[in-house]
Design a protein around this nucleic acid. Structure first.
Lengths: 342, 342
DNA sequence: CTGAAAGCGCTTACAG
DNA sequence: CTGAAAGCGCTTACAG
């Protein structure tokens, strides 16, 4: 038993004020033709009776659902991508909240299941738009949302087929930043421990890495694929250190990989950064807590989420689809590449 | 322009089949009084025309919203709690998805703002129930959801006022597990680096720790509060090691604190586990990637989320409110407390 | 400036 | 076994 009696409806408000339901509705929605006095009284009674519009009724009579959907397809889930999602969501919320939008979350197991969720959401008119993440090669999702007429924005693009507008991070520039730092320190043999290459953002980074290696004629530039697990990163590290000319710097796609690489190097008797420098392409609290702290690419993921949400809301308000670009992440140099002055 | 024409409504289905809208509705909702043949034809045409019920229309005519709400209040946000939330959400989804429920997420900045979100959700009939997390001392939320008549379940309880049923982890048993392990290894001086003590689950662990220290007459049992940041954990570690009889084992509330404690110990020239053993009360990929790997309390957070969701759905189906208890986390012993045999 | 009426797309008593 | 009608709680042309 709550303290609330029966929930008031608009009719109750109108009756209490002594006007028609139409008048009350107009007053609330700021439409013309209502005297200031009436408007004031309506708002007063609404406040007094604690009325709030029924969401379903509003949507049924044509209003937007004021909900954005996001599906997380948990293939290769990692702690690191979990962090990324949380930050993305938090950032999106900062914008959505102001616009009175909610965020509907669904977890799927395959891209096909994810597409099915979009189909349902659109058919039910349950969301106004969706945010796509982790695009892969030959991903069915952009085509699907276009066919469904479901407004969408890609968080981390671009979409190679240009079907869905995106908010992108310049992966090439980010990788260049890392390699410039490494080269300036004099390293000529560099390895890159990356994630699964069917992820387009991994692909872009690998291409940028390869390109830089060629351009600067580095002596070594191995790309070591992993499935984002510590185990695979450890195996990759052991393998590459067997090389007669092993790398003196190792770039890691994220923090979990970096922590594993560091541990493996130590187990093999290598010191950091003395023997091998290590860089993480993702900055998390663990990077600063380690000893030495990890040099890392730092990006403002909540800010990224905010931009993604703003972009999508803009589209819903009729803005033309357009790709936008985030600021390049910044490189935070720490002890894993440059020893602290004694 | 999608490939879809106009979205069909139930009337179109009924017309196509040649029955009344009522008949079509009854057929779809498995109500009696419809011939098998009619039912079959309705389902056939629904499939053929790709009809799905309008969410808003259904809710407006009395159906449940089939949505569960969860508000994250980001006071003292840490990477670790982000991981926890993601896993909780993922686990909840595994149950919600099967029940055709969605999860609506909102981020708030204060408990008061969180309560306001509940008020709005309930007034709009936007969710059927909510999941509460991170209860604090004198938390306004249990009272609020009760007053709002909003079904709720507390993830990680119990609620001291018993207003809201909970799914709990036995924090006392978990802490006992850790201390038993540490005592078996012969440690008599133990410190506990914990989170903010206004969090009830932290409070419960601290009490269990204190109790065990008294009961087993340990020589030292310092509780070191932190705000969950690496910085505060480092400071706490330095401080306690200045003690004339410093701890030989340090228990940490989570992985971020543990990583920081390990780094600080190393910086002070202490070896792990030789000089000091370290335990994390939260197991994440970083715990296994470190060298030595961290002994940690491992719990099945997705499973916990699944139980929480099932509990809430049960309440919505009329089950009596009841507290339930999760399995005690298990202790995974690794190199940070016991050196690997050479 | 305001009111009576229809409509959004379902569900569900109530008659037949 | 089936149909006509009312209702959920809003919004919005359309008359006055």
């Amino acid at each position: 038993m709550g303290t609330t009696g029966k929930r008031p409806i608009l009719r109750d408000i109108a009756a209490r004020v002594g006007v028609s339901e139409t008048a009350a509705s107009f007053a609330l929605n700021g439409r013309p033709g209502i005297s200031d006095e009436t408007r004031r009284r309506v708002l007063e009674v609404v406040e007094e009776m604690g009325w709030r519009p029924s969401y379903a009724a509003r949507v049924l009579s044509g209003a937007r659902s004021r909900t954005i959907g996001m599906v997380l397809t948990r293939t290769a889930a990692t702690a690191d991508s979990d962090l990324f999602f949380m930050r993305l969501m938090t950032g999106m919320q900062s914008v959505l909240r102001r616009a009175q939008y909610g965020l509907l979350i669904q977890v799927a197991e395959t891209p096909e299941e994810e597409v099915e969720v979009y189909r349902t959401w659109q058919a039910e008119r349950r969301v106004d738009g969706v945010v796509l993440v982790d695009l892969r090669a030959d991903d069915p999702r952009p085509r699907a949302v276009v066919d469904l007429d479901l407004p969408a924005v890609l968080a981390g693009g671009p979409d190679p087929d240009a079907l869905v507008p995106s908010v992108s991070i310049d992966d090439t520039a980010a990788m260049t930043l890392v390699l410039d730092h490494v080269r300036e320190l004099g390293h000529r043999r560099v390895a890159y421990v990356c994630g699964p290459q069917d992820l387009l953002h991994v692909q872009r980074r690998v291409e940028a890495f390869d390109e830089a290696v060629r351009h600067h004629r580095l002596q070594q530039g191995s790309v070591l694929g992993t499935d984002f697990t510590s185990r695979s990163a450890a195996a990759a590290t052991r393998a590459v250190l067997d090389d007669p000319a092993p790398p003196t710097a190792i770039i890691c796609d994220n923090e979990v990989l970096a922590v594993s690489v560091v541990a493996t190097l130590r187990a093999l008797g290598r010191s950091i950064p003395g023997d091998v420098a290590v860089i993480s392409c993702e900055d998390t609290p663990v990077c600063t807590a380690m000893q030495p702290a990890l040099t890392a690419l730092h990006r403002d993921t909540p800010g990224f989420g905010a931009d993604v949400a703003a972009h999508l809301l803009g589209r819903l308000d009729g803005e033309a689809p357009a790709d936008s670009q985030e600021q390049t992440p910044e490189l935070v140099v720490r002890g894993s590449t440059v020893p602290a002055p004694a």
